[in-house]
C-alpha cells in the first residue's frame, strides 16, 4: 500500500508542482511503478499482458498462438483494406506509408477538430472522406481492417505524440483523469485493477498490467468468438464495474486511449492479440 501511495505522489507531484501536464514525466513514473512491482520483467514483455504471471496460462496461450484465431480477421481485413472505394481510392490513400506499419503512431491529436483520433476512428474518417458510411467502432469489418493494419505494424515501437499545445494537453489530461477516477457501483477506476493489482486474479482471470495493455489490440477474445477493438474492451470493463459505458466514439474513450497508449511509448506493437 505504501508503494501505491508513492506512485500516486509521483504521478501527482509534477502536476502539483508545475501545475502543467507533463506526459514525459507521467510516463517515467508510470513505467517506474511497474518496474518497481516486477523488477525482473523486461519492458517489452508487458505486451504479453496476463501471460507474464502464470506458466499454465502462458502455455495455453502459446498453444492458441500456434495458428492464432485472429488469422481469419487479418485475412478479411486485408481484403477490405485492398478493395477500391466506389471513387477509385482505397484506405491506403488516407494514411502515410499507404497505411502499412503505422499503428504505433496512433492515437493522434488532430488540431483541426481539437479531438483525439484513434486508428479505428481514422479508418472511419477515411470512409467518410470518400463518401462511405462509418463502420461500427467495436467489432466487425472495422476491427478486421484494424487487425490487418496493426499486424503490419507488429514490433514497431509505440510512439504516441502529445503536442505541447493547450488542447492536446487538455485531451491527455482528460484521459489521465478518466483512468484514475473511480466510477460505477463497484467504485473501481481503471487503475484499481490494472495499476494496483496486475497479476492478481479476478475470479478465473488474471489482471493485465495497464502498461502495454493497448499493444495487443484489437484482440480475438475466445469469449466473443470474434475481434474487438480497444473501445469494445473499455465498454466491457465499464459494464464489469457496473458503470454506464460511454459511446464508442465518445471523447472520453478517445482521451483514455490517448493517455493509456502514451504511457506505453517505447513498447512494441504486439497486436492483433488473443485473449480468453
Amino acid at each position: 500500500m505504501r508503494r501505491w501511495l508513492l506512485l500516486l505522489l509521483a504521478l501527482a507531484a509534477p502536476v502539483a508542482a508545475a501545475a502543467a501536464p507533463n506526459p514525459a514525466a507521467d510516463r517515467a513514473a508510470f513505467q517506474g511503478w511497474f518496474r518497481h512491482l516486477f523488477p525482473q520483467l523486461p519492458l517489452a514483455k508487458y505486451v504479453d499482458g496476463p501471460y507474464n504471471f502464470s506458466a499454465s496460462e502462458r502455455a495455453q496461450w502459446q498453444q492458441i498462438m500456434e495458428l492464432p484465431p485472429y488469422g481469419f480477421a487479418v485475412d478479411h481485413g486485408k481484403a477490405l483494406f485492398d478493395a477500391r472505394f466506389p471513387d477509385g481510392a482505397g484506405y491506403a490513400s488516407c494514411f502515410p506509408h499507404g497505411g502499412i506499419g503505422i499503428a504505433q503512431d496512433y492515437p493522434q491529436f488532430d488540431p483541426k477538430t481539437g479531438r483525439v483520433v484513434t486508428l479505428p476512428i481514422a479508418i472511419n474518417r477515411c470512409r467518410v472522406a470518400h463518401g462511405l458510411p462509418k463502420l461500427k467502432l467495436t467489432t466487425g469489418d472495422l476491427a478486421d481492417i484494424d487487425a490487418y493494419m496493426v499486424r503490419t505494424s507488429r514490433g514497431h515501437k509505440i510512439d504516441v505524440v502529445v503536442p505541447d499545445t493547450k488542447p492536446a494537453l487538455a485531451a491527455y489530461e482528460a484521459g489521465k483523469e478518466y483512468f484514475y477516477s473511480r466510477r460505477g457501483q463497484l467504485n473501481f477506476s481503471c487503475a484499481s485493477c490494472h495499476l494496483q493489482y496486475p497479476g492478481h486474479r479476478v475470479r478465473g482471470d488474471t489482471l493485465a498490467p495497464a502498461l502495454g495493455i493497448t499493444a495487443s489490440f484489437p484482440i480475438y477474445r475466445s469469449k466473443w468468438g470474434n475481434m474487438g477493438t480497444l473501445v469494445r474492451r473499455f465498454i466491457g470493463c465499464n459494464k464489469n464495474i457496473r458503470s454506464a459505458p460511454d459511446k464508442p466514439d465518445s471523447l472520453a474513450y478517445r482521451d483514455l486511449e490517448y493517455f493509456l497508449t502514451a504511457m506505453s511509448n517505447g513498447l512494441p506493437i504486439a497486436g492483433p492479440g488473443a485473449r480468453p
Binding site: 499454465s56 496460462e57 492458441i64 475466445s222 480468453p276
Partner: peptide
C-alpha cells in the same frame, strides 16, 4: 490439459 482452464470454451488438449 491445463490444470485450470483459462476459458472453458477453448481448452487446449493434446
Amino acid at each position: 490439459v491445463p490444470e485450470i482452464a483459462e476459458n472453458g470454451a477453448v481448452v487446449p488438449v493434446t
